[in-house]
Write a protein that binds this DNA or RNA. Structure first.
Lengths: 215, 215
DNA sequence: TCTGTTATCCCCACTTTAGGGGATTGTTTG
DNA sequence: CAAACAATCCCCTAAAGTGGGGATAACAGA
């Protein structure tokens, strides 16, 4: 069973050269090659790729937007981003959108086949210069250095559910409907949340919960 | 001018085999090889390496602690972490401690020389399985610390001030006092914020504002 | 068994917000 | 200059949230 690959790139020369390159690997099969991502959901449904090579800059919807959509619709598909630019923001955005790897196009010809194989084995191929950016970024995120620093307010499971609803902007009534309990029960839970978080209004609850990542 | 490399690993066989391997590259010079990191600052001062290969698990001080020290004392030195384990926590700790790359030992023999060269060029070599962990972790980072493109809701400066107060849990009355305006003015601003953010309650405002880092 | 916790529900009085209006004073800009 | 906007303030009604109180059932541990 061969690995199905789809290519999204607005440059037809690049698409063709990638296709040619991948054909040299007998376990690979290019099942689709598209110049834009506007109809990508439909196209992906038809050609059923395991791996998608996605150019980051494309007319219409950008590759980054596309990744978000793809990851939502087809969570099992691995998306390998490719770009000629090492733009910090876009690298970071792509990764946060759910890309499985990020490589520069200059490494395309030489190592693309290796990269795709690494994807298959659950790895995330990254060009070293990209990786450097990612590492630097991670080091800059102080909150993330100590993920276990979240204080415990001893909320019960139910209280946490209610809290989650409230943080999503639901009113008491809506929370009640959502959790199949009465308005008064929601109120009761919220009162307890108030006590435990030492706050006195819903907005404070939302603010504190989001700041301290309780939800 | 050759690249000076120091090795920290408690396994002398590994140290020796790495040394042998690196000798095959004429631009590399192994200037130090140590079984622990307890005296690493002194040793580094003496042998002046450009790159350090650091085993993550070692007696006494761990490699992670060592990286922190090294990065503080010698910020120009690139540290390449090596490990046999893909332990999530240690991967992230190392990275956050300032390591420049992170590779598994199984890729040592085959690609170590390439990895070191990538370090020289300002890249961060990472084993793909490590890279996957890093990406996954980044994707989990709460959105409010992510430098993502914040959508612009065209809030006026004053509206943003009011929003900031609200997000901090203040009631209309408190916001009014804080900004030296009347309660009704606050209300008026909040109404406009509602329209611009397309929400219908204070909690939604707080939630949306924090999620999208408008404040 | 008794005590504590959790989750559920109810009531009353009170405060705060929400959703409509409308109005005035400036300032910016086509 | 007129139009557009920002910032300020006001009123009214309805809806939602707040702060007390209390109650019941289930269940876990001392």
């Amino acid at each position: 069973m061969s690995l199905h690959i789809a290519i999204f790139d607005d440059n037809s020369n690049i698409r063709d050269s990638i296709s040619l390159l991948l054909k040299t690997e007998k376990d690979f099969e290019v099942v689709g090659s598209f110049a834009h991502v506007l109809d990508c959901v439909q196209e992906i449904k038809q050609c059923k790729p395991d791996v998608i090579l996605m150019d980051i800059e494309m007319p219409g919807m950008t590759g980054i937007e596309a990744v978000k959509t793809i990851r939502k619709e087809f969570p099992h598909i691995q998306v390998l981003m490719q770009t000629v630019f090492e733009d910090d923001d876009r690298v970071f955005e792509s990764i946060c959108s759910g890309a499985s790897g990020y490589i520069l196009k200059n490494s395309l010809n030489t190592r693309l086949i290796d990269f795709i194989k690494e994807l298959q084995f659950g790895g995330s191929p990254m060009s070293p210069s990209i990786a450097r950016k990612v590492l630097t970024k991670m080091q800059q995120i102080p909150e993330h250095v100590r993920p276990e620093a979240a204080p415990d307010y001893h909320l019960t499971p139910r209280e946490k559910e209610v809290l989650a609803c409230v943080v999503n902007g639901l009113s008491y009534k809506m929370v009640a409907d959502q959790l199949f309990i009465s308005y008064e029960t929601v109120r009761s839970h919220v009162k307890h949340i108030y006590e435990k978080l030492h706050v006195a209004s819903l907005t404070e609850v939302v603010s504190k919960a989001m700041k301290e990542r309780i939800v």
